[in-house]
């Protein structure tokens, strides 16, 4: 079980796709859900979204950006190697419905990997979907083809203007809000991006879903590592989310909670890079 059947590199090799054998999970998974993976005995438990699932083949696909030790370790695994553990599907599936009006899906960075299955599901439910994806520059744009296929209209933005619109995803979001009858926005990406998107959609009074990438351990609601204030209440992202009403989320709290382990993460990543060089 949990053998890697396919491995692709994208976005200048900073992003990796793995198709993994996991028949039980593939059969149950719905858009918006995620898995927790552990590479080996000493590994950490890492949450990643189910970007695609194929129940007939009994496989799931994850797409992740290399940001630290664990994702770097995942990247080092070859086709034929196995993850020690894959647990899921976890989290609440996205509420997919036919919306009376336009759905706008906004993704930044690897948030696009999380956004893509949700976009596809809204499209499959018969919605009119406009998507906006962003990256720092052209070589880092990810899943453009897949997002194109899942949307009626796709806008690509780059911070440095090397491709598509020169500027932030919020520019194109504003354009859509001004010109279309937008009834739902789904915004997934780095915290500042989600925060700015929500500030903007609040002005337009348009419902906005965000997906929160909190730090997790078990993913089944037993530890509270993933807790976050939504409205006035504490919610657990792994069981109550990962999607929440973006207008209610305390993004400042999310930012500080995501930075909880900065020194340890750095230490682990440096150690891993050294070990890779010496072997």
């Amino acid at each position: 079980m949990f053998e890697i059947l396919r491995r692709e590199l994208m976005a200048d090799e900073s992003v990796v796709l793995n198709e993994i054998s996991a028949p039980l999970i593939a059969e149950k998974a719905q858009p918006g859900q995620f898995v927790i993976l552990r590479a080996n005995e000493t590994g950490e438990r890492i949450p990643l979204t189910l970007a695609e699932t194929n129940p007939t083949r009994g496989t799931i696909t994850i797409i992740y950006q290399v940001v630290g030790k664990s994702t770097a370790l995942f990247k080092s695994m070859k086709v034929g190697e196995k993850f020690m553990d894959v647990i899921g599907p976890l989290g609440r599936p996205t509420d997919i419905e036919k919306i009376d009006g336009e759905v706008v899906c906004v993704g930044g960075g690897t948030g696009v990997a999380v956004l893509y299955p949700i976009t596809q599901a809204f499209k499959d439910a018969g919605n009119n979907v406009t998507s906006v994806i962003g990256a720092r520059s052209k070589n880092l744009v990810m899943l453009e083809d897949r997002m194109q296929g899942a949307s009626d209209e796709l806008h690509v933005c780059t911070d440095d203007g090397s491709y598509g619109h020169h500027g932030f995803v919020t520019d194109m979001l504003k354009h859509a809000l001004d010109t279309k009858d937008v009834r739902l926005v789904v915004a997934i990406g780095p915290v500042p991006m989600m925060k700015f998107c929500c500030q903007m959609t609040a002005e337009y009074n348009v419902k906005t879903l965000v997906s929160l990438n909190t730090i997790m351990v078990d993913g089944t609601g037993m530890c509270g590592s993933c807790r976050i204030t939504v409205g006035k209440e504490t919610k657990f992202a792994c069981v109550d989310g990962p999607e929440f009403d973006g207008h209610q989320v305390d993004f400042n709290e999310l930012t500080s909670r995501l930075q909880a382990y900065c020194p340890e993460e750095k230490q682990a990543y440096e150690k891993f890079k050294c070990e890779c060089q010496s072997s």
């Binding site: 078990d218 530890c223 509270g224």
Partner: peptide, 15 residues
């Protein structure tokens, strides 16, 4: 209570 540095015992001990 959701500040960084506050753990549930479950999380602290599980880690």
């Amino acid at each position: 209570e959701n500040m960084v540095g506050i753990y549930s015992a479950n999380e602290y001990l599980t880690r």
